[in-house]
Write a protein that binds this DNA or RNA. Sequence first.
DNA 1: CGGTGGATTGAGCACACTCAAGCATTGTGG
DNA 2: CCACAATGCTTGAGTGTGCTCAATCCACCG
Lengths: 248, 248
Amino acid sequence: MGEPIFTREQGSYSPSCNQCSLSSVCLPVAVSHGDLHRLESLVSQGKILDRGELVFRQCDPFKSCFAVQGGAIKTYFVSEDGEKQVTGFYLPGEVIALDSVSTENYSCSAEALERSSLCEIPLNHLEELAARIPGFQQHLLQLMSREIQNSQQMSILLSRKTAEERLATFLLSLSTRFRRRRLSPTHFRLPMARHDIANFLGLAVETVSRVFSRFQKQELVRFYGRNCTLVDINGLADIAHKHTPMCE
Amino acid sequence: MGEPIFTREQGSYSPSCNQCSLSSVCLPVAVSHGDLHRLESLVSQGKILDRGELVFRQCDPFKSCFAVQGGAIKTYFVSEDGEKQVTGFYLPGEVIALDSVSTENYSCSAEALERSSLCEIPLNHLEELAARIPGFQQHLLQLMSREIQNSQQMSILLSRKTAEERLATFLLSLSTRFRRRRLSPTHFRLPMARHDIANFLGLAVETVSRVFSRFQKQELVRFYGRNCTLVDINGLADIAHKHTPMCE
DNA sequence: CGGTGGATTGAGCACACTCAAGCATTGTGG
DNA sequence: CCACAATGCTTGAGTGTGCTCAATCCACCG
């Protein structure tokens, strides 16, 4: 499906950032051609995880951030009483664990939703790169700043939006992220279970199911299991964009 | 009450970071004594705002971050339909607008809740400092990372916690932040209106009022208008810490 | 085949919202 | 100095959205 196929046997398969299909959306965007080899030398590529395997566990000592190369990752907190709270889904080209830079330990766990491959970027290397390569520090600050903004958008979603608005927003967010990767923004497969979506959006699974059914009846979307076709993007946007901050 | 008094007439009153009572909690913590003058030369202190005045407005071109020196600031989005959403309260020693580093324009507005003073740190200077002073970049990344974590905690609060749990969490958050500033963690004045608290926590004003009344009957807190005394911190913590992620 | 985990659908309930009224505090003008 | 307005806060009554509990359905797989 346009994505590289990774087999277990390839193990520490490790091409350059140069050759990576994501170089236009991942960290290399901030790095000049000349500096690319420096980035490559510090990043170890090709870590492969099967569905359900953990990238890192909450409270493990924090060592590295990870860029998703293929597949999909979910991050979640576990609270005292053992309940999980999904805090994010990460698709290829996106970077995990930026929220843990301030702490000794990972503040959440990260789990592969399907067979996935990751690039590991050790923290000390990250800081070193940022100090040395001019554009890279800026890019890193921007990545983190965007992460703050995302998280604030999430707060608005959780505090103001109805179940329908949340799910419309969610589907559109996936759509734009797939588009950024040059994949179809209207026809994709949800890498996560309904349960994870519900947890992430602060809803019950049953509500997700009911709203998706309603969306289908309204001819907004069509589902075949986890395969999802956005039929009426504008209709979804009308629902989603209530409460969305705008510059006048 | 141990805080500097600023009068309008002092205008661009501008002491050094050195002399600032917040040097132990603000940006200087990351800077060696020798580098302090460099920080000072780039930061302009003593911007004074009256209650209700804006530090910056959503969609203004982003130029600077601000450290709160005295008073209290609230930040909020305005959505298309004109509704506000409070995204944070900032007390002395805390830094505003880190979420806008990735964008051309401020992503939210910032307003003084009472007469407040601020230090302005232009973005280009911030990046310059980060590149030059070794510890400063790390500190900046940590500040932003902590901001992400805060925001994620907020998401958990909004998606999982009941009204009582939200308000207990809120009061305790203020308490620890006052303690950090060496002010009483059990006896303080809320700088914001009930309306702002409600908006921030995703509740109706009426709910805030009702829960505060209940807390008083349970001898957990005592209110005299906006003056607040935490009577039973442990009791509050029992309520607040449900759903709080913990390392085993 | 039956078993298991995920997804859907239905019925009833609860928490927090909305609407509405009343109270308290502060500030302004006569 | 008081009247009055304006704003902020509190309390009450009724309602609704989304949760809980429960049953059923479906696909995948041993």
